[in-house]
């Protein structure tokens, strides 16, 4: 088994990001959205400054009532659009859904390309676009955790590798649902698939034949394997079929790195079943009630 080694300056690399963020005024702008508010919660559009400096965007939904409420951070997916927080979550939690630099609503002046984002600046850790994207997530997390409506309440973060990196570097999260893998053991995973976004890595390495070592060095900084020991909360990890890129054997080093904090969830591939299981876990971690959607299942 070959695993991308942790760079010697891993800690310094990320400390520099933290230091840079600490020196930048987030300059928060909060805009109430009448259209996206509802009978249970108020929606705000949030604009913040991250490293660069670059202005990023987030939806922030706050339930009606006295609070405080548990907090839920949804890190950005790989794609230009993230849906606003779901109606069910907005009744139970203060929910923030973040758009990182380049995604819609945070795409001026920089608009990310799909495919293309994954390999942007990838041959140097200092220029890799994900250095800034992770910073965007950290900035969003800082803001959510600072809101008075969540003071003293548990907080969860949900998403792909960005959720793990965020929880590792901002210890206020008590629960993490890690539901999709991109950077985990990426240089081993990419040659085993032709699916995007990992296919972007295959294309880059094939087109620039001497780039593989440089790419491997860069992506080691964002490999969740190297961040997992720093995660303080409990972690629900989606586990796929044996032999797959999310199979139990492939994930074994990750589960070891998380240690006793990790709990595997073996996906059923039934979207309704898997959604409800994840929702019930998050609800239990945040001291809330589950909102299953399968109770609504229609009969054929």
């Amino acid at each position: 088994m070959s695993i991308n080694p942790k760079p010697e300056d891993f800690g310094a690399y990320w400390q520099a990001v933290d230091d840079e963020l600490a020196g930048i005024d987030p300059a928060v702008e909060l805009e109430h959205s009448l259209l996206r508010s509802n009978e249970h919660s108020t929606m705000y559009f949030v604009r913040l400054t991250s490293v660069g400096p670059y202005r990023i965007f987030a939806y922030l939904s706050i339930p009606h009532g006295d609070g405080p409420f548990p907090a839920l951070l949804q890190t950005p997916r790989y794609g230009s659009v993230n849906n606003p927080p779901h109606f069910d979550d907005r009744q139970r939690f203060v929910v923030m859904t973040l758009m990182h630099r380049g995604q819609r609503l945070a795409d001026k002046p920089y608009a990310a390309a799909y495919p293309g984002l994954l390999t942007e600046g990838i041959e140097d850790p200092a220029t890799f676009i994900y250095r800034g994207i992770v910073a965007d997530c950290l900035r969003g997390a800082e803001y959510l955790l600072s809101r008075p409506e969540v003071e003293g309440q548990p907080a969860a973060v949900v998403g792909d590798d960005l959720a793990v990196l965020t929880a590792a570097r901002r210890p206020g999260f008590t629960a993490v649902h890690y539901n999709l893998f991109t950077f985990y053991r990426m240089m081993e995973a990419a040659p085993r698939t032709a699916a995007y976004p990992l296919e972007e890595i295959n294309e880059h390495v094939a087109f620039y034949p001497n780039s593989a070592d440089r790419v491997a060095r860069t992506v080691a900084y964002v490999d969740p394997l190297h961040h997992a020991p720093e995660v303080k909360g409990k972690v629900l990890v989606n586990v796929g079929d044996p032999g797959s890129l999310s199979g139990p054997e492939f994930l074994e080093p990750l589960m070891q790195a998380f240690g006793s904090r990790a709990e595997p969830y073996v996906v059923s591939h039934e979207g309704g079943t898997d959604h409800d299981a994840a929702d019930a876990w998050i609800a239990s971690q945040l001291g809330s009630v589950p909102k299953p959607r399968l109770w609504l299942e229609a009969m054929g």
Binding site: H269, E270, G271, G272, T273, H275, R293, E297, G300
Partner: peptide, 14 residues
């Protein structure tokens, strides 16, 4: 083709 317990995935696994 209808897939019980499946959501917007529409049972794509199968």
């Amino acid at each position: 083709i209808t897939s019980p317990r499946c959501g917007h995935d529409a049972g794509i696994y199968w």
